[in-house]
Design a protein around this nucleic acid. Structure first.
Lengths: 108, 108
DNA sequence: CCTTTCTGCAACTGTTCGGTTGCGCTTTTC
DNA sequence: GAAAAGCGCAACCGAACAGTTGCAGAAAGG
């Protein structure tokens, strides 16, 4: 449905954002790997990773007895598109207003 | 520090994202203006606008007996920066891996 | 002055969420 | 085959949140 909601909501939590950054910089990570450095339980990290996976930001893959998560930052592009679109609407509005002001000023 | 959290969390709600888009496309809006078209109560819209204002995405200004909200999409830029940074880290990782693979391939 | 129209604040409800603990299952290792 | 390591699932708790209703206050119009 609205993938944007999932992505923004996923990134709305600071711990989850740290998880995402960590997975990205490491290239891959597991829940137990990140639990200690993040100061939370493994289950908490697993939940965060599940949310990130639901948003399509990471990809889970079972390898033997551990499940490694790798970043799939494609949805970030969609989120950026939304932002630039909304920001762009405002910019257009601003530009239109400026044109109008310029016209009025030209008329006197 | 928590600026990113506020922005992403604010955009994490679909209704709030609609409010933000509406304010941007209209150039400005009030809570009562958006209540009916959005199908929620004025107070609900007011709360959403307060959250958006806390995130620095809109600016509230009292004009007579109404308070108009105007978009201030600067924080969108910060959020985009965070995203490109995280995505970029992954891309760098990928590039480094490719370089390594190329080196190994060159060595035999 | 009285009515209307905006707004803000407070209380309440149901739900979601971040986090924890506990248990059971699978996979590696000795 | 038993121990260890890694994971998922379920239940639970406190806090936050989206949304509502209700009410009081400020500004404009008659």
């Amino acid at each position: 449905m609205t993938a944007h909601t999932d992505v923004f909501a996923a990134l709305g939590d600071p711990t989850r954002r740290t998880v995402m950054r960590e997975v990205s910089t490491r290239g891959s990570a597991t829940a137990t790997e990140l639990a200690v450095p993040l100061g939370v339980t493994r289950q908490a990290v697993a939940k965060h990773l599940a949310v990130l996976a639901d948003a399509g930001l990471v990809d889970a893959r079972r390898e033997g007895r551990e499940t490694r998560y790798r970043p799939t930052p494609a949805p970030l592009g969609d989120a950026i598109s939304w932002m630039t679109e909304v920001g762009g609407a405002w910019d257009e509005r601003l530009a239109a207003l400026e044109r109008q002001v310029a016209r009025r000023r030209a008329r006197g």
